[in-house]
Amino acid sequence: MAVISYREALNQAMREEMERDANVFVMGEEVGHYNGAYKVTQGMLQRFSERRIIDAPIAEMGFAGIGVGAAMVGLRPIIEFMTFNFSLVAIDQIVNNAAKIYQMSAGQFHIPIVFRGPGGPAVQVGSQHSQSLESFYAHVPGLKVVMPSTAADAKGLLKTAIRDDNPVVFIEGETLYNSTWEVPDGDVLIPIGKGDIKRAGSDITLVAWSKMVWTCLDAAKELAKDGIECEVVDPRTLRPLDVDLIVESVTKTGRCVIVEIGWPVAGFGAEVAYQVQKHCLDALDAPIERVTSEDVPMPYAKNLEDEVQPQVHDVVAAVKRALYLEA
């Protein structure tokens, strides 16, 4: 076990899978000579050559499509988007080709492709570069959507995603690259569709993924001072979703707060809330609470930017509402 950064964990995952399988390659903007816009592919060009670490022009639609074609003929592409905001110009390739070809070809073509890159707001990069698009992709049958919160999850899940025979949208936390976590050594895989309890507690269930897991852990620490024990459930993958784990936790605690950094309307947390009320109705003592970003495009001003996103105090307030501690 070594404590490493989220960035290093992703780098290890790709290196190990590329050593293991010569069909795996990486393509994206600045992934080679520049070592990646976020340095996730650091040193990989030297190790694997330009044949397998391919610098693409600024043309997401083009290189995402080349990736889908490569997957159709048996390669296992990792397509890096500099950020998932730019995946919007390639979304036709992801939604209409990657997610559909297996079905439309009646199973003749598997599409073993990973679309990866950072998502979610960073710091003062403006509304067009601060979006959380996981709910877009989680809506689409034919895609798997993975959102690791820790270095350990990032490594184990990226390895699984690369080996998966279906398209995986792998959204990394843009502000998590420097975060560290204990990562098991060697070839440890984490299955897609299995969530994780990041903190055990008996009073209330917090459901969150990616960066919001950290916000929830901070809120839980604060609430513990008042004797409130939060259970933080990290589904890790949104599609497929580990409903059983969430249901088990809410059945135990009777209260649920869902925290996501995306917008409120039709956000993925609404689906989680639906599953919770459906499966835990008799266990619920309070309405399910959601904490989301404000329903606006991200402002540029720092103070407003913080105000728009879910903060620790927002989670604490929602927990207290669900516990009837604040009228």
Binding site: S202, D203, D226, G227, I228, E229, K252, T253, G254, L323, L325, E326
Partner: peptide
């Protein structure tokens, strides 16, 4: 009162 939350079970 608003300070103590009994454990659920």
């Amino acid at each position: 009162a608003a300070d103590v939350v009994p454990a659920a079970d």
